[in-house]
Write a protein that binds this DNA or RNA. Structure first.
Length: 668
DNA sequence: CATGAAATAT
DNA sequence: CATATTTCAT
């Protein structure tokens, strides 16, 4: 196996380099996009001079089309920001969402705001226009970085190694575990073979247990458990966005083109995804109603949930997503709805294992927080924001209608709004598995001292809320500060560039993986438990693979957590929220916001575990409040309530009630 | 046969 | 407890 791993690695490298493997940068396939023929020509010339293989187009739409039709034909995209047919940022987002290619923005506008927008929307670099060849000579680094991080994410190698090592592996379980395995590797060659086995028994070892081969085992085999990694989920979302939410599993599967993934897997995920959207929409609607109740002023509100829905997009996308796509019009059909849809992630991933231990927390009860500080100011904004944000996908709309029913009265706005927005954002943004994200985030959050800051909070809130609108287009938040979006921003960033260290995106990925490497190290303590080893598959696109993970049930949730922690903390940012503030924002934005602290995470975590326990959905909230954890509650509460609501149909009001303000407390 | 919902397994 | 898989009715 080791060999296998090594081989896989090699392949990846090759991929990275492209055909030219040996001389990588040479021949790197670059798609240059600029509406100005002169600029385009200049750019082309310079790129060629760098020995890249260049394909040019003066229309963003065409670029998108080329990319969609030839997913594996390009290594990097370099696009002008200002283009008539499609905003460069939009192209950036779409590319980020639909394919995992590094995108470099090019513009004469070097304002911080604009650069920030590019970066937050996922650009891996932002070059000022009279671009110099010196700046282009090293752009290949983005391609390498991406591939590299991808590999890290998957960690197959590491993982495998560990597994194989007898004692070492972090992963495996002991106990009952079964082994799980990882699978194979990527791609074709390997197959994952694993199926879960029955419980008990088994020895560990495994050494090779996996066998793979198989192809078919007719009868028995249970299917390997698919872990919906972020990457995989992204693909899924991208497919859904393209096909429309009403699409069917089969088509999604086709579009995703991920090996080993079955229609059933997709159907299951779709089921979850739809439920998720439904919940969100419900929440949104509630908010809307609330808002309406309150202020009514918002035009948006009035519009009704529906209309608002669409706006929603903003949130969503973050990550890969990006979804903003403000004007989808241009895009394809479905888009509207689709895009609108956030990525929400239905939760994904996470291995079962994880769940066990740690996760359990979820419920959180903590709930009840109040928002303390929310300010009035917000309200107004919130209202709008929320409303706006609310936008849901069409589908959702339907649901919403149905479900919504009573909601209205209930909540008060601001808190909710925040919550929602936060939630939405997060959700959207994070492609990650909810739980994990949440956990990570929250954890952090909670850990942190609540700093509060009124001002801050308010801002946040605003952002959150308001964001939607702003974000997208303007990109930046009104105040000039950073974008609200941070959240997603961050996400995107992550996505894009996974940085090495953290790999935002990866984060989740890591988790799964974690077992192996990182985790191990860090977490050891808990360690014992873990055992899972997921396998990753790769979607077609990537040639390599590793997207899918098949896990086995693991056990150790702990590990996961740990992992998260580790990676997260820094990265956290990745996901989330925190980072939003923290990371990105912090710098710029706010001087005031003292808050977040990224650094803490690590340690805290442990203690935090407890904290963690919240729902997945909580996501982001916390921060909003400036530290109040409360937020989380809300979120969860909302969702939960929503859920319940569905059933009952009633609203969850109660929850809200709880709060003085908004807190939905419902945490169930 | 494919789907979505529900049941069940992990 | 959440998520993924399997089963079931359509």
């Amino acid at each position: 196996m080791l060999l296998g791993a090594a081989a896989a690695r090699m392949e990846e490298k090759r991929v990275i380099t492209g055909r030219e493997r040996d001389q990588f940068p040479v021949g790197m396939r670059v798609l240059a996009v600029d509406d100005d023929p002169v600029c385009l020509k200049v750019l082309e010339t310079l790129l060629r001079r760098c020995q890249y293989h260049v394909i040019t187009t003066n229309q963003a739409i065409t670029a998108l089309k080329l990319l969609r039709e030839n997913r594996d034909m390009f290594d990097l995209v370099i696009s002008d920001v200002h283009m008539p047919d499609m905003d460069g940022f939009k192209l950036l987002e779409l590319v980020g969402l639909e394919m995992d290619l590094p995108v470099i923005m090019l513009s004469v506008n070097g304002e911080t705001k604009s650069v920030m927008k590019g970066i937050t929307h996922g650009a891996c670099d932002y070059l000022l226009k009279p671009v110099r060849i010196e700046e282009l000579r090293n752009i290949w680094q983005h391609v390498v970085r991406r591939k590299f991080s991808k590999r890290e994410r998957s960690n197959l190698d590491v993982y495998k190694d560990f597994n194989r090592l007898p004692g070492a592996d972090p992963c495996h379980s002991h106990g009952h575990g079964h082994g799980q395995t990882t699978a194979g590797a990527s791609d074709q060659s390997g197959r994952i073979g694993r199926k879960r086995k029955e419980m008990h028994s088994d020895e560990e070892d495994d050494g090779e247990e996996n066998d793979f081969q198989e192809g078919d085992e007719p009868s028995a085999a249970k299917k390997p458990r698919v872990v919906w990694s972020i990457e995989l989920h992204r693909k899924f979302v991208a497919a859904v966005n393209q096909l429309g939410i009403d699409t069917v599993p089969k088509r999604i599967l086709e579009l995703m083109n991920v090996e080993k993934l079955t229609r059933e897997n997709v159907a299951s995920h779709l089921q979850k995804y739809r439920l998720y959207l439904k919940r969100l929409s419900a929440v949104a609607s509630q908010q809307a109603s609330i808002v309406a109740a309150f202020g009514g002023r918002d035009p948006f509100l009035h519009m009704g949930a529906f209309e608002g829905l669409q706006s929603y997009q903003p949130f969503a996308p973050c990550a890969a997503l990006s979804s903003f796509i403000p004007h989808h019009g241009s895009l394809g059909r479905t888009t509207a709805a689709a895009f609108g849809v956030p990525e929400l992630a239905p939760a994904i991933t996470v291995q079962a294992a994880a769940s066990n231990g740690m996760i359990s927390h979820c419920a959180g009860d903590a709930s009840k927080f109040q928002l303390s500080g929310i300010q009035e100011n917000q309200q107004p904004n919130l209202g709008q924001g929320s409303a706006t944000s609310l936008g849901l996908p069409q589908l959702q709309q339907k649901w919403i209608q149905q479900e919504t029913g009573d909601l209205s009265a209930v909540f008060s706005g601001s808190a909710l709004a925040n919550t929602l927005s936060g939630a939405l954002q997060r959700v959207a943004s994070s492609p990650l598995p909810p739980q994990e994200l949440l956990e990570g985030v929250q954890t952090k959050v909670s850990a942190q001292p609540p700093i509060t800051m009124a001002s801050v909070s308010s801002e946040l809130v605003e952002r959150t809320v308001g964001v939607s609108a702003n974000l997208q287009d303007s990109g930046i938040s009104p105040q000039g500060t950073l974008p609200i979006n941070d959240g997603f921003t961050a996400d995107k960033l992550q996505l894009q560039d996974p940085f090495d260290s953290n790999g935002g995106t990866n984060f989740s990925v890591n988790m799964p993986v974690c077992p192996s490497g990182s985790l191990t190290a860090s977490s050891n303590a808990k360690g014992g438990a873990s055992s899972c080893s997921p396998v990753l598959l790769a979607p077609d696109t990537g040639r390599h693979s590793n997207y899918l993970q098949f896990g086995v049930a693991g056990n150790s949730g702990h590990d996961m957590n740990d992992i998260k922690q580790d990676h997260l903390h820094q990265g956290l940012s990745t996901g989330g929220f925190n980072h939003d503030f923290g990371t990105c924002m912090t710098e710029q934005t706010d001087p005031n916001v003292p808050y977040l602290m990224p650094q803490m995470k690590p340690n805290t975590l442990s203690s935090e575990d407890k904290l963690k326990q919240r729902n997945i959905y909580d996501l982001g909230i916390p921060k909003l409040h400036g530290g109040f954890s409360s937020s989380s509650c809300n979120f969860d509460g909302l969702l939960n309530s929503m859920i319940k609501a569905e059933k009952d149909d009633l609203s969850f009001t109660d929850s809200d009630l709880g709060c003085d303000f908004f807190p939905l407390g419902a945490c169930i």
